[in-house]
């Protein structure tokens, strides 16, 4: 994989952070209506709120940092008939990286995780995260035991990532490395109780 080949190069140059999330995230996900989506706080919540226009099949967080991956696991276990996508940032995933181990041992086939890794805490002023300083979340996912793991850092690799998150042979993890640039500008609702009711109404026909 390109990222692993690039790892010998100077981290400061960060040659793998070239994709723009505003293009790469929609290209990787494709038809978003095919998934039930949990989006972690900050950048990825905005990516998804904009992409789905706050669709009822997406629950976007604005707090509870570290919760997106285990929330997606609970949803995937509850709904084996549906494909569940967790999309979250490097900062959010690092806060509760043990969730990768919890997910890996169960390996639900209908769960895919995408970590949009810009190497920074964008929401708080673009301070560098650990992934700018040598930490490889794809290697951590693989080490946790998630077998279908891939790093996507170039446009030409996105199609392979898009296939992986839809395959369904086991939990998939895609590390999508992007430039530290802004997610789409979109003003979304921030009431989680309303989001819960909307999501359940659409999926279950009841609040």
């Amino acid at each position: 994989m390109a990222t692993h080949e690039a790892q010998g190069m100077a981290q400061a140059a960060a040659p793998e952070f070239v994709l723009d999330r505003r293009e790469a995230v929609p290209a990787l996900i494709g038809r978003h209506e095919d998934f039930l989506i949990i989006a972690g706080l900050a950048g990825t919540a905005r990516d998804i709120a904009f992409l789905t226009r706050e669709g009822a099949h997406a629950f976007t967080m604005a707090g509870a940092m570290g919760g997106a991956a285990p929330m997606g696991l609970g949803l995937a276990l509850a709904r084996p008939d549906r494909r569940v996508l967790v999309i979250t940032g490097d900062g959010e995933l690092l806060m509760n990286v043990g969730a990768l181990a919890t997910i890996a041992v169960l390996d639900p086939p209908n769960l895919s995780l995408v970590c949009v890794d810009n190497g920074h805490y964008g929401e708080t002023g673009y301070q560098k995260s650990h992934t700018s300083l040598g930490v490889d979340l794809a290697a951590m996912a693989q080490g946790a035991g998630i077998k279908r793991t891939r790093t996507i850092a170039q446009e030409a690799e996105i199609a392979a990532g898009a296939r992986l998150i839809r395959e369904g042979n086991g939990t998939a993890f895609v590390l999508l490395r992007v430039k530290p640039t802004e997610p789409p500008s979109y003003k979304r609702g921030l009431d989680p109780a309303l989001e819960r009711l909307r999501f359940r109404q659409a999926l279950l026909g009841k609040a």
């Binding site: 039930l36 570290g66 929330m71 609970g74 995937a76």
Partner: peptide, 9 residues
């Protein structure tokens, strides 16, 4: 968080 996800489903 897991149980909140279960409830959504």
């Amino acid at each position: 968080a897991l149980l909140a996800g279960a409830d959504l489903g």
